[in-house]
Design a binder for these strands. Structure first.
Lengths: 250, 250
DNA sequence: TGTAGAAGTTCACGCCGCGTCAACATCAAG
DNA sequence: CTTGATGTTGACGCGGCGTGAACTTCTACA
């Protein structure tokens, strides 16, 4: 036969290791055209094409099981559907790494300017996993104590920074209200995330606590006045945004 | 004690599972403040703070062993060095996913236009990154028309995404300037790549066009102001980075 | 106070995609 | 005939936990 490549040749041609080829044989992803009496694997042209296909999909980050189903079904629309699915995942990954990189860069930046690793800064772009929507009333009990303790522990400098961040949030919210952003828009969600992170500096609220806190911002005159200072409706927007935030992120 | 949280409370507060907390105990990353006579783990405020620190770094994609060394050493310069290392990895990942996403998108596109997944097509941007110079020449001709058409074609949603990416680039550049990355550093090159990709959304510039565009960013006040918003020198860095980018990649 | 069930504990295996020995067989070249 | 390159199977390792199993202990309610 003309097209007879042993495992080493295939490995060199494709740039993968022979181990990988053996692995693909083991899991039935790529079976050699024939196996010699000595157990050596021999690949033909068909297998090379299949391997190419596999490698492309692998390079795209697809899992081997999914690759198998794609390669096995020659149906283009199946391939397209699967790829489209996969594309969404890739884009999400890319954005995730972009955010992480930006956050790390910012963290480095602030560290180099002598600032400690404050949680507020650090929690930018932080992905909180979900909490269970269970009753956790007791947490709220000593929450105030702990919040006070944290606040005391911040020091003069920390307190001032904290206040400044608060100001930024109020202004961002005001701008959002004026522009007319919805509570579930990315822009408002960013602000809410920032607010949550800011809050976490002195107190780590769970989902329920965070929602009731933002509700309180609406109900309590003094708080509402504080948040509505730049634009009326900011406290409401924060509350609604927080509800959405909790639903999605906590 | 006031600050006494059992493993379940800590899990709910932080959003991670109790299993993870036990794991962290096992590997010595986060030891409970004390363990009851019945073997139950109890955490205090100190541990919560440490956990926060850990989770942030974890969210940044850092490995647990590296996290341990970062959290254990309170030395900021160590932290910076480790983070800088990590940043390089993150940017590499980001770039990888960006390339993958682009290739997948192209593959989907060609499949939808009825073309089979030929090897020639498939290997675009895969192993051998080939650019056909003649095709690029033709692009430059009606580049402006094309840019306008593309922008219109993006739709409201696309436009907004485009704007947000722009913002990310500006911020990443700002951070890079502050941190002091060189124009030919991997980090800056990554940002430039992103900028080029971003630009390619509405206009695919060739090498010369890309260089003169970034030069224009420096010369034109309005553009410079835009890129220098986060940190002065960003436009310059982008131009120099683009020159390097063109030299190596285009 | 008895009892149920919620929540804690310690093993210990599973996952994904191979890398990396180990121990041995077989091939091509000098 | 040796030597070294290359092939084979088999098995463990990794990272960061998920997910049971089997057992103990705390908490709430009748």
């Amino acid at each position: 036969m003309k097209t007879d490549y042993d495992i080493g040749r295939v490995a060199k041609m494709s740039g993968i290791t022979s181990r990988t080829l053996r692995h693909y044989d083991d899991i039935g992803l790529l079976t050699p055209a024939w196996t010699g009496p000595d157990g050596r694997r021999h690949y033909g042209h068909t297998e090379l094409l299949r391997l190419q296909h596999i490698l492309v999909l692998r390079e795209l980050g697809t899992g081997l099981d999914r690759i198998a189903s794609i390669v096995d079904s020659d149906d283009p629309s199946t391939t397209i559907a699967l790829l489209r699915d996969h594309l969404a995942g890739l884009t999400a990954q890319r954005e995730r790494y972009a955010r992480l990189a930006a956050t790390v860069a910012r963290t480095i930046d602030s560290l180099e300017r002598g600032q400690p690793m404050t949680t507020a800064h650090i929690f930018d772009g932080f992905d909180h996993e979900r909490y269970e929507p269970e009753a956790r009333e007791r947490w709220a009990d000593d929450a105030v104590d702990r919040a006070n303790a944290s606040w005391q522990g911040l020091g003069e400098d920390g307190k001032r920074r904290h206040m400044r961040t608060d100001r930024e949030i109020v202004e961002a919210l005001g701008a959002a209200v004026r522009v007319g952003f919805a509570a579930d828009s990315a822009e408002v969600q960013d602000i809410v995330a920032k607010h949550h992170a800011w809050l976490s500096e002195i107190w780590i609220p769970d989902a329920a606590a965070y929602r009731s806190l933002t509700q309180m911002y609406v109900d309590d005159e003094r708080f509402r006045a504080h948040y509505d200072e730049v634009a009326r409706g900011a406290a409401l927007l924060l509350r609604d945004g927080a509800a959405e935030f909790v639903r999605i992120r906590l």
